[in-house]
Design a protein around this nucleic acid. Structure first.
Length: 208
DNA sequence: CCTTGCATCGCCGCGATAGA
DNA sequence: TCTATCGCGGCGATGCAAGG
């Protein structure tokens, strides 16, 4: 009889909100272990997997809603707190994805550089059979030294460049995020005002 | 109304896979 | 090799229409 299967837990609107807030405050896209922390922080009995799947599902839905509302220009979507939270989470996830891509390309670059360095060092250090080459030995060691120096300088330079670029990218991202956040809040505020006015109008009509 | 049948959603478990 | 994570299929929950 007993299949051993857990009873399905279905997220309510409030559950979703609680979970999304935790996701934003802990950013599990940066550290995967945070999914577990989030699941433990929530009042309902869900595991890390459930939290991640639910978040991803909501993100997908939000992404779809975003793209369809972009297509239907002029049609304003309902913009509640949940949507704001999800947009922020989408931003967090995007940021981490970008960062991962960055790191990967950096690692590839580094590997190519290392291979090149090893090859050049080996080329220079390979012992030659002729006496003439033996006489040149001291010169070779200085060439290795200067090569290492040159390599260190190059590495330092590229690291500096990269750091500056990252800093610039980060600042731009931050700026963009702030602007979008302001826009969202303004929109929400306007909607609130509108519904308040509508309500007042409605109650005036009723009181007449 | 109640029931039944069907479609869809989304939760859960299992096996595969990647990374340490 | 071990462990964490992921992808996917199965299946339960839910909603809805149709028929009695």
């Amino acid at each position: 009889m007993d299949s051993g299967r857990k009873k399905q837990f279905r997220f309510s609107e409030q559950d979703d909100m609680k979970m999304l807030r935790e996701v934003i405050s802990r950013n599990p896209f940066k550290d995967r272990g945070k999914w577990l922390e989030i699941s433990l922080a929530l009042p309902m009995s869900v595991d890390a997997r459930r939290v991640r799947e639910r978040t991803v599902l909501l993100m997908e839905q939000r992404r779809k809603a975003n793209s369809s509302s972009l297509k239907k220009s002029g049609v304003d979507e309902v913009y509640g707190e949940k949507e704001i939270l999800l947009d922020e989470i989408l931003d967090l996830a995007n940021d981490e994805e970008e960062k991962k891509k960055d790191d990967k390309s950096k690692a590839i670059k580094e590997e190519v550089l290392c291979k090149d360095i090893r090859k050049r060092a080996l080329d220079n250090l390979t012992p030659s059979k002729s006496d003439e080459n033996l006489k040149k030995m001291p010169k070779k060691s200085t060439s290795v030294m200067s090569f290492l120096k040159e390599k260190a300088e190059l590495e330092r330079q590229s690291k500096e460049d990269e750091l500056a670029l990252r800093r610039e990218q980060f600042n731009l991202e931050k700026e963009r995020f702030e602007i979008e956040k302001q826009e969202r809040l303004q929109k929400l505020e306007m909607e609130k005002q509108q519904s308040k006015l509508m309500f007042e109008l409605f109650s005036k009509c009723l009181n007449k």
